[in-house]
Design a protein around this nucleic acid. Structure first.
Lengths: 251, 251
DNA sequence: TTGTGTCTCTCAACGGCTTTCATCGAAACC
DNA sequence: GGTTTCGATGAAAGCCGTTGAGAGACACAA
């Protein structure tokens, strides 16, 4: 059986089943333990499962608890790839600030097995690390913005002010020549604060976000170091990023 | 059976059952006593159960701590009544600080349709108000204590210091002549801070909590204004409360 | 106090994990 | 066509975590 086929079978299994033992997986894909272990490592790097003694736990079945409605379901594959690429830009031992948004959640998943310190105002992101030993999670506190599960306001900003991040990974509503913008006026203050206290700014955004100006401007493109996006991005926008000195990573 | 599987079964059991004998658990998971003991130690470390001579007590159905995933399953009559009674002690327009623990979650549920401002360090409690329009929720922020979903440490305490609560509703591990005590050393600092900034202290605790001294002392009884408990409380303890000027509400 | 049952600690055995190496087959190159 | 190179695979060695059994300490009840 080819690797692609094995991976597909494993994914299918883990979207229906919470736990699987190594032995059973070997039988399922008719491969040696060594191969299955390697496959599981890949799946773990992609944030689909978590390896445990004796097998692996699915991160897909538990999803409903992380799904806070809306955006999470659309273009999942792309967001996963973007999240993975963004996580790779972070080095072990660093402090990473994670902004809200479903793409940032994907990035968080890919930081699960890493050795980092996470600071976030997003409860869904915090829950990704619910039972993770390597990752310290600090929540900012603040007013709870119900629909999105993010914490906002003076308390949030005060905590952020006391933090210094090696990297910031955050999603955004719109990216254009004018800079970053978002449609939610309440959350932009916290976004700005995050930008301010981070040494390296990584924006995660699929190609549909480009060329859009949302109601509230957040920051100029010059504040951004890297934008991670998908392969659907127009050349026009790539050049725009280049002009503004923003590195563009295609996941 | 693999370790993950055993743990899942044990959790499931303890979310439905208050006590289980070691022997029965061995049978349930088909493992030796030694292994089950080790598993129980882990669960105890995670605050899900309390080990006792001959087996283990559930803290999920019992009170005090709450695993996020189990939130929906544990809803015993008594706890609900206690939660309801405690919520009645709060007036509209007030700021209520809610400590972690499953009884406090019940109180939170009964505040859902009220017009109050909630301050909490517990994510499960914040989620009670997820889709609620009348209730403002402020989270303290801080280090995420895994599994219990509470936020702790300097950030949490700093936020609490800047808050002033009309009422505090919190659960506790033990209540005796010596005062309040709890088994989790990490969370007591935040509990103390909550006590300090609240004008009116309401403790929610079923009768099994009385006469118990847990490892870490939290506060003397004189710091408490009201204790809401169930009808199973011994006269002996009612008098103790009276002696210390604590009002006792039986739900 | 004594006896029974339970707990803790230690040790040995087992199984799973990682690392390394050899093999195989496919694609690339000469 | 033959050779080389590279990635994928499986097997083996050694390490580490998990498990179960037993000895002694401890708790509880009669």
């Amino acid at each position: 059986m080819k690797a692609v086929e094995r991976h597909k079978r494993l994914r299918d299994l883990f979207s229906n089943q919470e736990f699987a033992a190594l032995e059973d997986l070997c039988q399922l894909v008719d491969a040696s333990e060594a191969t299955v272990r390697r496959d599981l490592n890949l799946l773990e790097q992609n944030g689909l499962i978590r390896r445990v003694h004796g097998g692996a736990l699915s991160l897909l079945t538990g999803d409903e608890t992380l799904d806070f409605g809306q955006a999470t379901t659309s273009c999942r594959e792309e967001k996963m790839r973007i999240g993975r690429a963004a996580a790779k830009l972070v080095e072990d031992g660093q402090t990473v600030i994670l902004g809200g948004g479903s793409t940032a959640v994907e990035a968080a998943r890919n930081l699960f097995s890493r050795n980092v310190h996470v600071v976030t105002n997003s409860i869904p992101i915090a829950q990704v690390f619910w039972d993770c030993k390597h990752v310290d999670v600090t929540l900012t506190g603040g007013y709870l913005y119900p629909r999105l599960g993010v914490q906002l306001g003076p308390i949030c900003e005060h905590t952020l002010a006391a933090v210094s991040g090696d990297a910031l990974i955050m999603g955004i509503g719109g990216i254009s020549e004018k800079g970053l913008s978002d449609s939610n006026a309440l959350i932009v203050d916290s976004l700005r604060k995050m930008l301010k206290v981070s040494r390296r700014v990584i924006i995660v955004a699929d190609h549909t976000k480009f060329g859009r100006d949302r109601i509230v401007p957040v920051a100029p493109l010059s504040d951004v170091d890297i934008i991670v996006t998908d392969s659907g991005l127009d050349v026009e926008y790539r050049e725009m990023l280049k002009r503004h000195g923003v590195e563009c990573v295609v996941a």
